[in-house]
Amino acid sequence: MTAEQIIFLIVGAVTLISGLMVVTVRNLIHAALWLVATLFGVAILYTLLNASFLAVVQVVVYIGAIAILFIFAVMLTRRQSAETGASVNTNWWMGALMAVLTFAGLAYLLQSWSGFSKQASAIPSGFDAINQLGDALTSPAGFVLPFEVASVLLLAALVGAVYLAFTKK
C-alpha cells in the first residue's frame, strides 16, 4: 500500500463517519458541524486527485457559504432543547436493505471494470488545469452556453429565494 492509499482510506473513513454523524446526532448545530467535517473530507479527496481548483472551491462554497447558511437557518428556529422523536422509524430495515442491495449491485457491476487495476496516467508537467478550465468555459467550441446558463440558473435561484422570503414577510 502506498502512502496515498493509506491517506485515502483514513480520509474516506472519516468522511463516512462524519456523514453518519450528520444524520444521527440530535443537536442540529452539531449536525451542521459534522457536515462541515464531511465536506472537508471530500475536499481532501479532491486534493488526492490533484484537483486543486475543485478542492478549494469545495471549501469556499460548501464550508464558507452553505454550512454557514445551514447554521443561520438552524438559529432562525426556536430551540427545541430536547428533540425527543425517534431518529429512525419502523421501516428502517427496508432502507438499510435497499442501501446494501444498491451497494452490492454497484460492486458487482464495477467488478469487471478495468479502471480499478489501471494506473492513473501521470499529469504532464506544465499542465495547468485552471488554464484548461478557463479555455473550456470561454471558447465558443467549449462550454460557453452552459457557462452563461449557469449565471441564469444562479439568477433564478436568487429570485426564487427572495420571492419565498418576501411572501413570508
Partner: peptide
C-alpha cells in the same frame, strides 16, 4: 499553489466557522 487566491478565501471560511 495555482489556486493561491482562492486558498486565502478558503482559509478565511475556516476562520468564519
Amino acid at each position: 499553489l495555482n489556486t493561491g487566491l482562492l486558498f486565502v478565501i478558503a482559509a478565511g471560511s475556516i476562520g468564519t466557522l
